[in-house]
Every structure is written in structure tokens, then in C-alpha cells.
Write a protein that binds this DNA or RNA. Structure first.
Length: 465
DNA sequence: ATAGGGTTAG
């Protein structure tokens, strides 16, 4: 075993220990044991593995922070902990950690602020994010064009493009906005299918004397395809060629995917073949795009044969490749064959990951094979991943297919477990489970769920540490 | 972790 693999194995063992512990004092004793050689890499790996169990991840971080006699956390571990606390909307802990960093003379980085602002935007508080950005310097971190671009991108990725655009207009002079700033805004408009606003941004950037680069063109190209403007996209692609703009693998992948999604499989395949002739090699992402569109608009058999041919050419599929194929198979009622690909994934050393499980669980449950879905759910923990919010939502919904009393109890148990792990179920989910339990005569469990629901309200602080 | 290309189903 190489160093990285043995490191990951050590991390998995420790993650399982942390997950299994029920007693804080004995966990402290285990973790400060002198035979464990703590390194920032080991801590970061464990924090990532515990990502979908936020409270446990933070408990682990705090134990090392407060109880280990010699080990000192790195900046990157602090960033992970801040990310997890912010995702739990435990902002008090976020600021405690920021202050702790400063008192340890570890300066919060622009990345720390990228994380915090991203979480605020995700929680529906974009103005709070902007305020934090504007006060970064008070936390010992300077604002520059870099961090300005980051906050613009955070807003755009969360579809708050209008807000990003307004903020941009006010401050673009002060930060001397560059091509990247304009690309971020143009991509933001395109991502919400407002291609015209993307084009306006593109023109405005040129009026300001900035030259578009290949990324700019790829953004506009993708914008056309994403908005279903296939003809315009194709024309733009030809116009790029006419102007002797050198395509890269992203350009071709965009067109293969765009044409394929529109059902133009033949043309997509032609572009795929053309790129090699043009001296641009497809990447794994290009293959993923082609395989996906073949699954959706052609036949899963053709998709599988492209998958096998990429292996023959020496490409190493990633978990996305496998997930695309597995989804395609499940979609055509070939779930068992999908499971075989899941085994291949395991042998290949790339997963299955939580997304893979979510795909197969969803398809088994939708086909009425609830027990199979539950069995797969139990298997997640045997690997290195933990169920995420989607997993719980899929499974809880599946419990309502048969309306059995036992299923309602399972739904309730899943709901309790997800809250325990730091996820916030939607109100609708709570109400469905409550109704289900009441209708099947599980009054006392329903009462428990009701208490849980009121504890998940907007102003409660469940994870105060 | 300053920008662009592959993963969902509704």
C-alpha cells in the first residue's frame, strides 16, 4: 500500500471510530492517544469523510482543538470546520473559529471568506454575504480583485445574478474589473438562460477595452445551447472558426453535449470525431458528455459501447462516467446491469460514491423494490461515504409508496437520523411523516417528531458547542 | 477556492 492509500485507510478507521462513539470522554481518550500521529492531511481527510455528519465532524475538530496536548490545527482544517459549521447554519461557531484562528496567529485566507459567503448565499442571505465581504479586512484579510471576483461568482452560482450584477456595477471601478470578472457575470446570465444579458455583458466588456478570451467564447457558446438556441449556438461555433479562434477541448465538449441534449446525435458524434482530426484529444469529460447524450437520446447499448471503447483507448473513467452509465441502464429498466457496473466501479477504485447510491436507490424504490433500496442504504456505510440530504429525501419519499405502518416507522427513524446528522428536512417532509404516523396509529412517535420539528425552526440553535 | 466542458428528477 502506498502512503496515500494507507493514509486514507487510517482516516477511514478513525472516522468509523468517531461515528460509532457515544461517549465524549472515551472518544477524547481515544483521539489524544499518543500512538496516533496527527497531521493536517489526516485531519482534513477525516473532516471530508464526516462531511455528511456535520455534528460529529465538529465534535472531532473541537476535541483535537481543546484536548490534544500538542497537536495544532492547520489553516485548511479550520477552513473545513468553518465550512461545516456554516452549513449547519451555526454562525456563532463560525465566528468563534475565525477569532480562534487569529488568536493562534493563523490568518483566515480569502478561501475562508469564500466559504463563509457561499454558505450565507446558500442559506438565502446574500446581503449578509456582501456585508461579510466588505468587512473582510477587519478579520485580517485584505480585499482585492481576486476576492471581488470570488464573491461575484458565489452570487452567480447561487443564481443571484441580478444581485451580482448590481454589486459589480458599483464596485467594478474600485477593483478594476478584468476579463475574469466579466466572464463570471456573463456566465451568470447564461446559467439562468438569459443569453441576451450574457451577450450584453460581453459587448460591454469590449467597450471597456477588455479583450474576450477563449473562456468568454465558450461561455457564450454554452449559453446558446443551454437556452435551447441550437441554431444560434451552431452559428456562433462556425463564426468562432471563421475568426480563427482556436478551439480547445472545452469548446468541443460544449458542442457535443449541446447538440446531443437537443437530440442531434449524429451531429454530436460528427463533432466528437472531428475534434481528433483537428488535433484536440477528447477528455474524460468529453466522453462523459457523449455517453450521457447517447443514454438519453439514443440507446444505452451505444453508450455502453462508447464506454468500452474509451477503456480500450486507455482512458480511466471517473465516478461521473460510471454514474452516467449506471443511470442510463437503470432508466432502461436494467437495474441489475447497473449493479454490475457498480461492482466494476469498486474494482476500479473509484467509488461507488454517495451519488451512485442515490441513483440506484431512487430507481429501485421507484420500481417498488423498497427493500432493495433500504438494503443499498445500509450498504453506504460499509464504504467511505455517508448518506447525504438527497439520500434521505429519496428514501423517506419511498416509504409512502405502500402506506404501511412499518414503513411509517422507518420514515420516522430516517427523519430523526437525518436531523441528528445536521440536515434540515423541509417542512413538507416533516408534515408527511407526521401525517403518516398519525394515520397508522403511531401517536407517540408522532409527538416525538413534532418536538423535533419545532427544534428545527429558523431561530433555534441546535448545534451550539 | 478568481472564470468555461460530464452526474439528478421534478
Amino acid at each position: 500500500m502506498n502512503a496515500a492509500a494507507s493514509g486514507a485507510a487510517a482516516a477511514s478507521g478513525l472516522s468509523k471510530l468517531i461515528l460509532a462513539s457515544t461517549n465524549r470522554q472515551s472518544l477524547i481518550r481515544s483521539l489524544v492517544c499518543p500512538s496516533i500521529y496527527w497531521t493536517p492531511l489526516l485531519v482534513d481527510t477525516i473532516l471530508k469523510q464526516l462531511w455528511n455528519h456535520g455534528p460529529k465532524a465538529l465534535q472531532f475538530f473541537h476535541i483535537l482543538l481543546h484536548h490534544h496536548p500538542t497537536y495544532a490545527h492547520s489553516v485548511s482544517s479550520f477552513d473545513h470546520a468553518i465550512d461545516i459549521a456554516a452549513r449547519l447554519r451555526n454562525y456563532a461557531t463560525v465566528f468563534t473559529l475565525l477569532h480562534r484562528m487569529r488568536s493562534l496567529r493563523l490568518h483566515p485566507t480569502p478561501k475562508s471568506f469564500a466559504i463563509i459567503t457561499e454558505r450565507y448565499v446558500a442559506a438565502g442571505k446574500p446581503d449578509k454575504a456582501l456585508k461579510i465581504f466588505l468587512s473582510m479586512h477587519q478579520h485580517g484579510c485584505f480585499q482585492d480583485l481576486h476576492s471581488f471576483n470570488t464573491i461575484l461568482d458565489v452570487l452567480c452560482k447561487a443564481r443571484r445574478v441580478e444581485k451580482a450584477w448590481n454589486f459589480f456595477k458599483v464596485l467594478r471601478g474600485r477593483f478594476q474589473a478584468d476579463v475574469i470578472s466579466y466572464n463570471i457575470i456573463a456566465n451568470g446570465w447564461c446559467s439562468i438562460k438569459r443569453t441576451n444579458k450574457g451577450l450584453e455583458t460581453f459587448k460591454e466588456m469590449m467597450e471597456k477595452g477588455l479583450s474576450p478570451n477563449l473562456t468568454t467564447y465558450n461561455i457564450i457558446l454554452k449559453g446558446y445551447f443551454r437556452a435551447g438556441q441550437i441554431d444560434e449556438g451552431w452559428k456562433f461555433f462556425l463564426e468562432m472558426k471563421r475568426r480563427k479562434i482556436e478551439f480547445d477541448v472545452v469548446t468541443y465538449t460544449t458542442v457535443v453535449h449541446g447538440l446531443g441534449v437537443a437530440g442531434e446525435i449524429k451531429r454530436a458524434q460528427n463533432v466528437f470525431n472531428q475534434m481528433v482530426d483537428d488535433g484536440v484529444l477528447p477528455s474524460v469529460a468529453t466522453y462523459n458528455a457523449l455517453i450521457q447524450v447517447l443514454c438519453k437520446k439514443d440507446s444505452v447499448e451505444n453508450a455502453v459501447s462508447v464506454f468500452e471503447s474509451m477503456l480500450k483507448k486507455g482512458y480511466a473513467p471517473n465516478s461521473t462516467t460510471y454514474n452516467v452509465v449506471i443511470r442510463g441502464l437503470c432508466h432502461r429498466e436494467q437495474r441489475e446491469r447497473g449493479m454490475e457496473f457498480m461492482d466494476r466501479m469498486r474494482d476500479d477504485g473509484c467509488g461507488p460514491n454517495v451519488q451512485t447510491y442515490n441513483i440506484v436507490i431512487r430507481y429501485f424504490c421507484n420500481a417498488g423494490e423498497i427493500e432493495r433500496g433500504l438494503a443499498l442504504f445500509e450498504k453506504i456505510n460499509s464504504g467511505d461515504c455517508l448518506p447525504n440530504l438527497d439520500t434521505y429525501n429519496v428514501l423517506i419519499s419511498a416509504m409512502f409508496v405502500r402506506k404501511r405502518s412499518d414503513d411509517m416507522l422507518v420514515a420516522g427513524k430516517l427523519l430523526v437520523e437525518m436531523v441528528d446528522r445536521g440536515f434540515t428536512p423541509r417542512r413538507l417532509t416533516f408534515n408527511r411523516v407526521l401525517d403518516g404516523l398519525l394515520l397508522t396509529g403511531n401517536q407517540s412517535f408522532a409527538k416525538e417528531i413534532l418536538r423535533l420539528k419545532s427544534g428545527c425552526g429558523r431561530f433555534s440553535r441546535r448545534f451550539k458547542l
